[in-house]
Design a protein around this nucleic acid. Structure first.
Length: 280
DNA sequence: ATGTCAGGTCATACCTGA
């Protein structure tokens, strides 16, 4: 099972690129960010024709998130983060799909630092973390996928010293992300590739993609019961080189099918007993 | 500091956000 996150940077402007990638990789579940489209202009027919059912939370001009699933309708469980009824920005959508809880997020950019946009980013991360903690407490297999707008460590930036005062790399935001992971989430890409320089975003400026001057800011976080199912993780970097493409590349994980809870319960007490017998 | 996109408008030239 393949699950991907992709900041499309305008779903209508990038629709040919999105459809080409869906056809090429056929992911089972896709989280999209930066739709830049109001709800009524979401290209539902084209997405359906590509074999996906979708739910979306749009907004005029900016932001916007969607969840796509192949041959299954995502059951919406949440629209928007709790904790601030005045927040009108479309940055979070959550659904149940085949026993998995999928949270699709688009964290605020937060630039320029310092300023009100940066403060909004920190406040958003607090609300997001509080919600993530509740999801862990609920004990269901969960994946939080999206554009986190943070490079977690220096390994995730082509030139860290240039980014220290940028809202994507400010220590406050890196700490917020680290604190989130400490709840018990697994950063799928970094876990599968502990030492590799892997980027998910390349600026449109300064020929960044050709120079591989990139950032790793799109992440898939796995709850403790999903993490053992992780088989592979990667970035479809070549998509960033296509015509009229987003500045992000699709980022994905491959999961093994979940084992039934009943067989797991039966297996655990048997194994240690068998080992003890073998020792004696 | 520079630079490139997309969306939107007191629109065909500029503004914002990223």
């Amino acid at each position: 099972m393949r699950i991907a996150t992709y900041n499309v940077n305008g779903i209508n402007g990038r629709l040919p690129v999105l459809l080409k990638w869906l056809e090429l990789r056929k992911p089972d579940i896709v989280c999209l960010q930066e739709l830049k489209s109001p709800d009524e202009r979401f290209p539902e027919a084209a997405i359906q024709a590509a074999g996906y059912q979708a739910i979306w939370h749009g907004q005029k001009s900016w932001n916007g998130v969607a969840i796509l699933a192949r041959a299954a309708l995502p059951t919406e469980t949440r629209r928007g983060l709790p904790g601030d009824s005045d927040d009108l920005q479309s940055r979070y959508l959550e659904a149940e799909i085949g026993g998995l809880t999928i949270g699709c997020l688009y964290a605020p950019n937060g630039n320029p630092w310092p300023g009100p946009k940066f403060e909004y980013k920190l406040a958003w991360y607090k609300r997001f973390s509080a919600h993530a903690k509740k999801l862990l407490a609920a004990g269901r297999p969960t994946i939080l996928a999206g554009d986190y707008n943070v490079m977690p460590t220096e390994l995730d930036v082509y030139k860290p010293e240039r980014w220290v005062d940028d809202a994507l790399f400010r220590i406050e935001v890196r700490e917020a992300y680290a604190k989130l992971l400490k709840q018990g989430w697994t950063d799928a890409i970094r876990t599968r590739h502990p030492n590799a320089r892997i980027y998910t975003f390349w600026d449109y400026f300064r020929n960044a993609y050709a120079r591989n001057a990139g950032l790793r800011i799109d992440h898939l976080l796995l709850s403790p019961d999903v993490a053992p199912l992780l088989k592979a993780a990667g970035v479809d970097g070549e998509v960033r080189g296509w015509e009229k493409t987003s500045d992000h590349a699709p980022t994905w994980i491959e999961l093994a099918p979940a084992k039934k809870a009943t067989s797991k319960k039966r297996a655990t007490p048997v194994k240690p007993a068998a080992k003890k017998l073998a020792k004696r």
